[in-house]
Computed example of a mutant assay.
Amino acid sequence: MSPFINLDGKRALVTSGTRGAGAATVALFRELGARVLTAARSRPDRVDEAMFVPADLTTPDGCAKLAAAVRERLGGIDVIVHMLGGSSAPAGGFAALNDAVWSKELDSNLMPAIRLDRALVPAMVAQGHGVVIHVTSIQRQLPLPQSTTAYAAAKAALSTYSKSLSKEVSPKGVRVVRVSPGWIETEAAVRLAERLAKDAGTDYEGGKRIIMDSLGGIPIGRPSKPDEIANLIAFLASDRAGTITGTEYVIDGGTIPTV
Rank of each mutant, 00 (worst) to 15 (best):
S2A: 14
P3L: 15
P3C: 13
I5F: 10
N6L: 15
N6S: 15
G9S: 14
K10N: 12
R11I: 11
L13P: 12
V14L: 12
V14H: 11
V14Q: 09
T15A: 13
R19E: 15
A21I: 09
A21E: 15
A23E: 11
A24V: 09
A24W: 05
T25V: 10
V26Y: 00
A27C: 07
A27Q: 14
L28N: 01
F29S: 06
A34W: 03
A34D: 02
T38I: 05
R41Q: 15
S42E: 15
V47M: 06
E49R: 12
A50C: 04
F52T: 02
P54H: 06
A55L: 05
A55W: 05
D56S: 08
T58A: 14
T59G: 09
A67D: 11
R71I: 10
R71K: 15
R71Q: 14
E72A: 15
G76L: 12
D78I: 10
D78T: 12
V79C: 13
V81E: 13
M83L: 09
M83P: 03
G85P: 04
G85H: 01
S87M: 08
A89P: 02
P90L: 02
G92M: 13
A95R: 14
N98T: 06
D99Q: 07
W102E: 05
S103K: 10
S103I: 09
P112Q: 01
R115D: 11
R118M: 11
A119M: 04
A119Y: 07
L120D: 06
L120M: 13
M124D: 08
A126T: 13
Q127T: 12
G128K: 10
H129G: 12
S137L: 05
T148G: 07
T149L: 15
A157G: 03
Y161D: 02
S162Y: 04
S164C: 01
K167C: 03
S170P: 00
P171V: 01
R175L: 01
V179A: 04
V179S: 03
G182N: 00
W183Y: 06
W183G: 01
E185K: 13
E187P: 02
R191K: 14
R191E: 15
A193N: 02
R195E: 12
R195Q: 13
R195T: 12
A200M: 00
G201Q: 05
D203Q: 04
Y204E: 08
E205W: 11
K208F: 04
R209S: 12
R209Y: 02
I211Q: 14
G216P: 03
I218T: 11
P219I: 00
P219G: 01
I220C: 03
I220G: 03
R222M: 07
E228T: 04
E228Q: 08
I233Q: 03
L236I: 14
A237L: 07
S238A: 04
D239V: 05
T243P: 13
I244H: 08
T245E: 07
G246F: 10
Y249T: 14
Y249R: 06
D252L: 09
G254A: 11
I256F: 13
I256Q: 09
T258Q: 14
